[in-house]
Simulated scan of single mutants.
Amino acid sequence: MQHTSSNTHIRRSQQRGHADHGWLKSWHTFSFASYYDPAFMGFRSLRVINQDIVAPGGGFPTHPHRDMEIFSYVLQGEMAHKDSMGNERTLRPGDVQLMSAGTGITHSEFNPSSENPLHLLQIWIQPAQRGLTPSYSDWESRRDAAKSLLISPDGREDSAVIHQDAYVYRVKLAAGESLSHEVAPGRGAWFQLISGQAQLGDATLNPGDAFATEASGALTITANEAIEGLLFDLK
């Protein structure tokens, strides 16, 4: 990770862990599965950001989770979700699903297309407490604002609900546009760039790059070209 100051860091795309399973190509921002780096175990409550490309017809068979807030953000293609709580849903680009695994759930995720790959981000956030009752919520891509709240602790602005003091925003800016996000004292922000090129101070980010800061004050994101990304505001 590149250090731009004592409390600001850049995580470059090419520094991430990578796994190629044939049907699945995955890039790991933090230690995950066989990729282990003790320097990159997470950021505050943010534990996993995996960028996954799933081949047509491929997917993750039914498997268990517990005591983790797990969400998927679909970038391209479709994802068919089914879980032990009875939820069945097909997510499309821009859609978010959020599961609180709590005391334990099982779920499966598949690419239902026989022709097109599925491209998504899979993200884990540690809950504020263990042993929660499992739950499910989602957010449909129905707004095109520069900064849209996807996930929050209280469901404000029709966001999906997470059991952690964490806010997740989708950022979409046209070339030349900027936005500022206020990082409160004692909190941290992680910006994961999905597409385009962004400028954060002296740092230029390309797809797959991330910018992290624990400095309070305004965090300004400028689009050198049209961008999409996720902004995490974490206790």
Score class of each variant (00 low, 15 high):
Thr29Phe: 00
Phe32Gln: 02
Phe32Asp: 01
Ala33Arg: 12
Ser34Cys: 08
Ser34Pro: 12
Tyr36Gln: 14
Met41His: 09
Met41Ala: 13
Met41Pro: 06
Met41Tyr: 11
Phe43Ala: 04
Ser45Asn: 15
Val48Ile: 15
Val48Glu: 06
Ile49Trp: 05
Ala55Phe: 08
Gly57Gln: 09
Gly57His: 05
Gly58His: 07
Gly59Met: 00
Gly59Val: 00
Gly59Glu: 02
Pro61Gly: 11
His63Val: 11
Pro64Asn: 13
Arg66Pro: 00
Glu69Gln: 07
Val74Glu: 00
Gln76Trp: 12
Gln76His: 15
Lys82Ala: 13
Met85Phe: 11
Asn87Leu: 15
Arg89Leu: 14
Arg89Cys: 12
Thr90Pro: 04
Leu91Asn: 10
Leu91Cys: 11
Pro93His: 05
Gly94Pro: 04
Asp95Thr: 11
Ala101Phe: 09
Thr106Ser: 02
His107Val: 02
His107Arg: 01
Ser108Tyr: 11
Phe110Cys: 10
Phe110Ile: 14
Phe110His: 12
Ser113Ala: 06
Glu115Trp: 03
Asn116Pro: 08
Pro117Leu: 06
Leu118Asn: 02
Leu120Trp: 02
Leu120Glu: 11
Leu121Cys: 15
Ile123Arg: 00
Trp124Leu: 01
Ile125Pro: 03
Gln126Lys: 07
Gln126Pro: 01
Pro127Asn: 10
Ala128Trp: 11
Gln129Asn: 08
Arg130Leu: 15
Gly131Ala: 07
Asp138Phe: 10
Arg142Trp: 07
Arg142Asp: 12
Arg142Glu: 13
Ala145Cys: 13
Ala145Gly: 14
Ala146Val: 09
Ser148Asn: 08
Ser148Trp: 04
Leu149Tyr: 04
Leu149Met: 10
Leu149Lys: 01
Leu150Trp: 01
Ile151Val: 12
Gly155Ser: 09
Gly155Pro: 02
Gly155Trp: 00
Glu157Pro: 12
Glu157Thr: 07
Asp158His: 13
Ala160Leu: 01
Ile162Ala: 05
Gln164Lys: 03
Asp165His: 11
Asp165Met: 06
Tyr167Ser: 14
Val168Ile: 06
